[in-house]
Design a protein around this nucleic acid. Sequence first.
DNA 1: CCAGACGTTGTT
DNA 2: GTCTGG
DNA 3: CCAGACGTTGTT
DNA 4: GTCTGG
Length: 226
Amino acid sequence: MCGRFQLSVKGKHISERFNVEVFDEMYKPSFNCAPGQNLPVITNTEPGKLSFFKWGLVPFWAKDPKIGNKLINTRAETILENPSFKAAFTRRRCLVPANGFFEWKKGTKKIPFRVLLKNENLFAMAGLWETWKDQENNMLHTFSIITTQPNELMTPIHNRMPVILNREQETVWLKSTNSDELISLLTPFQSDEMEVYPISDLINSPFNNSQSVISNVKPDTLKPPF
DNA sequence: CCAGACGTTGTT
DNA sequence: GTCTGG
DNA sequence: CCAGACGTTGTT
DNA sequence: GTCTGG
């Protein structure tokens, strides 16, 4: 799955890479982006700017916004069958910019890993967004990250991974209205363009947010199967 | 027809 | 809102 | 995802 | 164990 990620670059880089307007008073780099936080996304309806939405999708018909705590991810395989996601898939898609994401490998001890592109570039995860209104009509904007099967690199660590789009796919994801074409984007990213390394437990607490949370704890064991 | 659910992950 | 179950 | 809380009553 | 908050 994807329950934590990293977006620790300067606003200028996001602006250049995704061709969006970034307001520096809104954007703060983070080594530890966690569910429940307001985080930057690029929406299909306003693709020229960064929007700040809360991670954890609240469907517009929900009675209780707490459901968002559970909907931080959306399974690609069932996205069209799910009442919670169908409408958003059709009309409200977004990109979630990141320069790393984190997964925990289960074992006798739970070990966190950082996953990134080999070239250390920014990338975009595929997401859905929603607008929910409370009784006073106050709006709440939320999003969810789409997950798919793991690629070869991820398989030793976890049974899911976020959908990462390449540059051409990013445009399609925001602009297409063809369901088949959109669905065809939701596949595992190329393993040979990615890398992974183990990090310390510092990542576990969402309150830790410094460079140290992404420090490699075992420099000699960069390659799977560890 | 109405009522009630609507999710992912991992683990057992 | 939309689907499933009764 | 992980961390941390998880309750009621009445009184201050 | 299960839910909420970050």
